[in-house]
Design a protein around this nucleic acid. Sequence first.
DNA 1: TTCATCCAGACAAACGTTTGTCTTGTAAGT
DNA 2: ACTTACAAGACAAACGTTTGTCTGGATGAA
Lengths: 353, 353
Amino acid sequence: MSARKKEDEAREKPASLKILADYLGLCPATVSVVLNDVPGRSIPQKTRDRVRAAARKFNYQPSLLARSLRKKRTFTIGVLVPELSDGYHTMVMSGIGDHLMREGYFYLSAHHRHKPDMIEEYPRILMGRGAEGLIAIDTALSHPLPLPVVAVAGHQKIAGVTNVVLDHLRAAELSLGHLYQLGHRHIAFMRGQPFSADSDDRWSSIVAVARKLNIEIKPDLVVQLERDLTSPELGYPVVQQLLQSNQRFTAIVSFNDIAAIGAIRALRDANLGVPDDVSVFGFDDINLSAYHNPRITTIRQPLRGMGETAARILLQRLQGFKNYPQELAVPPELIIRETTAPPGKRALRRARP
Amino acid sequence: MSARKKEDEAREKPASLKILADYLGLCPATVSVVLNDVPGRSIPQKTRDRVRAAARKFNYQPSLLARSLRKKRTFTIGVLVPELSDGYHTMVMSGIGDHLMREGYFYLSAHHRHKPDMIEEYPRILMGRGAEGLIAIDTALSHPLPLPVVAVAGHQKIAGVTNVVLDHLRAAELSLGHLYQLGHRHIAFMRGQPFSADSDDRWSSIVAVARKLNIEIKPDLVVQLERDLTSPELGYPVVQQLLQSNQRFTAIVSFNDIAAIGAIRALRDANLGVPDDVSVFGFDDINLSAYHNPRITTIRQPLRGMGETAARILLQRLQGFKNYPQELAVPPELIIRETTAPPGKRALRRARP
DNA sequence: TTCATCCAGACAAACGTTTGTCTTGTAAGT
DNA sequence: ACTTACAAGACAAACGTTTGTCTGGATGAA
């Protein structure tokens, strides 16, 4: 009986303020005042209780649409992301979502698959839907927008856009430093896809650090990722290509962990052991890197933390905080596992036929 | 100059219908009529052109808030999900997002981490925010809701909720059939966490198929996942526990691929080879299963397809389609890779000390 | 009694749209 | 010249809130 009643209530559409007011013999404004605890209004406690009881009884849920229209606050953020099923993006989104929901905001997400027309169109649509601010993950924004924007892994400096980025120089120091210390001098590199926001920064940092360490970057040992994939298949063919060049190398610096997994597989399929013959260095430290076989040595990006940071900055900006940073670099962390070791002999032997 | 102008426009907040109307010397209603191509209204082409030109000039973007309030359509869906960073959920969400955006809908997602009070609260909030329907992924809804709901991997039959589920019986036939055919008779099982919607269905299907195949399920060879994790750490300790029981088994049926990876690692750490000593059977076929070392034999759930199906059904229901199915089972697929092989000798030897 | 005060709540306008109805002005038909 | 008809657009109400102002009545003080 009581369960049945509860069920019925849950089935009903929430009542409007007017219905509630009619039922109570009050006017909608008064009901609104009570339910929102508007200060400076004198409503006797008895009436307040009646109103609250009725609200419960009718399962009243204010329409955020109407409220937003009136108050010009929606507590909604737009999130732009290239792809929903990718580990990097979802990790960042997870941090974003955590922080936003904790602060009472919701978010609309839109994925654009790096298509420029969508990247152009979605911010407008999201604004039309009341987004108060935007967070863009790995998205190549091209011009300023009339609302606060925070970009994660954005590489452009755009007015009004706060960039939350990894400290790529530090990351390159950690990765190349580690390999150098192990004794590697002949290192192959994988460059990220042109559409990926981090690609250029990460590459120029590597170039800078390699120069500092006196590591030569041979053009033949640099391969370029092209495909828009989120599976290890990404890294497989380029490493095959690398092997066919027959150049000597003892280590590969992969663009990310996913590609590193593909790289390891390509090496294995070519009968090369990791790390016995070739060391592989990942990037990101996704969930699975620690459980891959062999466990992947990598640079950890605090992805969830970057998402939270992005959300936090955006909310601060929404609250009128003016002196927001134009860029915020977060420090990477070196995670040494099993895919790196001192240079192997077979790879060298193989390179001198 | 032109670029500069374009930039300025992009910086401006979109103008309202009233501003446009004032500028044009028309009334807002007329402008609305033109921009929406309302049929049955006679507006001369000349005026139409003027209106459209002005809309472009002022970068007009209709407020979906206001429109929704008036039309009582928001083209917004609420998505309930336990966790944003999990591969299973994001894969399904990816399918959902694809279909919804293709059809001009946006979605608000909310993650609840399996907390009952949030699962109770969020649907209300999402409704308040104008969600026309809900998609719940792996979420234990407890009662009917006053709007169309589609559940992916939901295990309850609830009025008004369409369940999109995997055909678990078929999945069990495929997995156990495969192991049986290889010669396995002593099989260990991993049961999913109690809060995971699929756990019970999957288990009862396994029990049913095992009975049919005359495979005995020994209580000592059944371990229960408890922790709310999305990393392989999930499967590690339970397999250690299994090994300590010192019971003979030649194969493990894991609850999912993530846990299978943890299981493989636990076996390896106990000096047992996969599949030489013990076969491991996964579930889900996540991106990385094909690239894990060894490649994981598993059941593929068409996750993205399930997401798309869920979104499609929901949209059909929103369009007033009444004869929607109460449940829709999608067929799994057996993916044979490297973690299963005929029973190993060492595992048997080990079990008879 | 006569103000002034204050309480409780009503009233109205506004947010930005959409849509049904009404009004003008012009052109065509008789 | 007088309807009739239609084109072009104005007008108003509505969606569900919020918020500033206003009012009627009760209460208190002088």
